[in-house]
């Protein structure tokens, strides 16, 4: 045995007690004080446990309903979404199943409709809150990076779709439902001021914008919101990838006629 101090993992999230015959296996696991397999397993919903993991406090009924609604809204972005197309590209080539989710995460991470956009939009909420004037100014004069970053600079106001024409029905339906069920300040303010903000942005509100408002109302930081957005959109990537794996590359667009190499 060495007399050097044992290195440990510091965490407020998780505590374990060992099995009596094996110190490498946990007998009891506690998440923020709750016994996970003795209590939460029987009594908590998945959404409540998800909230607890991030916030270390259980949600109230409105928070629970809001996160549940958001999770449904985000679960499948549909097969035309970039991240789902990435997963399907794994499926049609017979790539490993985890690679489909890795691909979906890689692509769904970005500034256009992805998790980084949600990160930035939550930052906008932190800065502007419910001040139309502040939103107008920030959209007009977006923060410029002071030094180079691995992320590309935003090319459009975060939370809005630069390729959109008008706010799509599912975005409006989701915003209306979440504002109603969550009864929170920012979602309701967004519901009331959406068109004005869209005028400032010169493009319509996107799913990323609704998600960011909901996650901000739930008290998540930009980093937590980014992570949750990545997680919550994976079910669609999984099922569409599995479906295309069965159908194969012959039945999946290859854009044989659409690809044009410049001379």
């Amino acid at each position: 045995m060495t007399d050097k101090p044992v290195e440990t993992i510091t965490t407020k999230i998780w505590r374990e007690t060992p099995e009596v015959d094996n110190p490498f296996a946990a007998a009891d696991c506690f998440c923020a004080g709750y016994n996970v397999y003795g209590d939460l397993l029987k009594n908590a919903s998945f959404i409540d446990y998800l909230f607890l993991l991030f916030k270390l406090q259980p949600p109230n009924p409105q928070q629970s309903a809001l996160l549940e609604g958001l999770a449904i809204a985000l679960a499948n972005p549909g097969p035309r979404d970039h991240s789902v197309r990435a997963a399907m590209s794994a499926g049609v080539g017979g790539s490993t199943h985890p690679s489909a989710l890795i691909a979906a995460l890689s692509v769904g991470a970005g500034n256009l409709g992805g998790a980084r956009e949600v990160f930035h939009t939550v930052e906008y909420w932190q800065h502007c809150n419910t001040s139309l004037k502040d939103w107008q100014q920030l959209i007009k004069n977006p923060p410029a990076e002071q030094r180079a970053d691995v992320w590309l600079p935003m090319e459009h106001p975060p939370g809005f779709d630069p390729n959109g024409v008008s706010c799509p029905t599912p975005v409006k339906q989701t915003l209306a439902y979440l504002a109603d069920v969550g009864k929170t300040v920012h979602l309701n303010w967004l519901q009331d001021n959406r068109q004005q903000l869209e005028e400032f942005a010169d493009c319509p509100l996107a799913f990323s914008g609704v998600a960011a408002a909901a996650l901000f109302d739930l008290g998540f930081s930009p980093e937590q919101a980014e992570m949750l957005y990545l997680l919550l959109r994976l079910p669609g990537a999984a099922v569409h990838s599995l479906e295309q794996e069965k159908l194969g590359w012959r039945k999946y667009p290859f854009f044989a006629n659409g690809f044009k190499l410049n001379p």
Binding site: H82, S83, R85, A86, S89, A90, A103, S106, V107, G108, A109, G110, N111, L112, G113, G114, R116, V150, W151, L152, E155
Partner: peptide, 12 residues
């Protein structure tokens, strides 16, 4: 295609 999609969606 994953890389092209990541580029178009402005990932890293």
């Amino acid at each position: 295609r994953i890389s092209a999609l990541a580029g178009t969606a402005r990932s890293t």
